[in-house]
Design a protein around this nucleic acid. Structure first.
Lengths: 214, 214
DNA sequence: CGTCGCATGTTTCCTCTGGCCACATCTGCG
DNA sequence: CGCAGATGTGGCCAGAGGAAACATGCGACG
């Protein structure tokens, strides 16, 4: 599954003029760079250097630095969607699925902190500048919608305000993810990264309890 | 209550060499500028120009652009703390207080979107570079902690995991605020700014229901 | 009331970064 | 074989953060 890395290696060893798969290499380099520095605002020149290429080469593949970041974000959303779907499939009962999906969201944010930050970077908005990003984002959100609707159909959740329920679930896990990724919970609570998933599970379960039809 | 604005006006009318209260003027200008553009990464030169001053003058009052943003963030946290305390005082019963504080958090984020964005801007971390910011942030969070402990003492909430409960509450409203401020909820849900508070109230109430001792 | 020191603001300069252009190099296709 | 288009390079510019040297004015102290 790593033709990309092969291409990168070839470039570095052989010193060929043409890279072979520069677009992917740039996206990967940007992702890692952001994950390492924790800062979305990284110099494009550094990313190009990581890919073993001059800074101007990036413009053969992306209209702008923002477009590169948008691609990183779009791939992040695709990966997130995948993980959410897998998590949903793991849960047996509808309410268990809600919890699994929520925990998976937080887990994704912690594992892929670099991508997660870019995915919600305000400087990429308005999103309609990057159609693939808008679509990927929408698709990931659709997983939440699906699992909630399923729970409503199974009469586990109240049916009166589905949008509100989706917002509640998404908002809860998103807020958790943000606070964890940005380390705002580290000071007061000192929470390890593995405890985070357990804590998220507890919290989501409690919200689901509150949302339950009664 | 506006000596600051007076000073700014004096400067603009009189064209005096010394501003009189440049520090405050810069902070205000930055805040407005960010709120308007929606982007934290604004040119320091523009802020200085808004304050009617050359860009280098800012360095007499702040070590760096980041320090200016940190001051904006710190004042934001102070204002947030104030609003949260007022909201807490509005609620009669302990669980009502929880809801009021949560709603106030979301309302603050929407009203003061500029400040809110800066307050959680990752580029300002690590926070120990800016002690006043760290302190202000901690104090604001303390309001959540206080209102939760009160509810626990009143036996409204379970007592086994106070930190988890604080995280749940904060995470829920923070996630909501982020998604609203960044407009991620606009597409799928098309939510007006006044509906947002009502929606937040509903959601927080449901979480509190889930957290309730049973 | 003068004058001197220090805080505050300005000008100028340097470096870094995003973005553009002309040129170089490769790859594939007729 | 050779040409055309795609891909990468180096040089350039403009804008932005930051430092340094200079200018200005407020306030304390004689």
């Amino acid at each position: 599954m790593r033709p990309v890395d092969e291409r990168v290696r070839l470039k570095k060893e052989g010193g060929r003029y043409h890279h072979g798969n520069l677009k992917d290499a740039l996206v990967l380099a940007a992702e890692r760079s952001i994950a390492k520095s924790g800062n979305v605002d990284l110099p494009l020149r550094d990313v190009a250097k990581l890919a073993g290429v001059s800074h101007a080469a990036a413009y053969r593949h992306f209209d702008s630095k923002a477009a590169l970041l948008a691609e990183v974000a779009a791939r992040g959303f695709k990966a997130l969607e995948e993980q959410l779907r897998e998590a949903g499939a793991r849960g047996r009962a509808p309410d268990a699925r809600l919890v699994e999906v929520g925990v998976a969201y937080v887990a994704f944010a912690l594992e892929s902190a670099g991508a997660f930050r870019v995915m919600f970077e305000p400087s990429l908005k308005p999103l309609d500048r990057f159609p693939q990003l808008a679509e990927a984002s929408f698709n990931a959100l659709a997983v939440f919608h699906g699992v909630v609707q399923e729970a409503v159909a199974a009469k586990v959740l109240r049916a009166d305000d589905v949008s509100g329920t989706v917002m509640a679930l998404w908002g809860l896990v998103h807020g958790h993810a943000c606070l964890l990724v940005d380390g705002h919970l580290a000071g007061p609570f000192e929470l390890g990264p593995d405890d985070a998933a357990a804590s998220a599970r507890l919290v989501v379960r409690r919200l689901v309890d509150g949302l339950r039809e009664r």
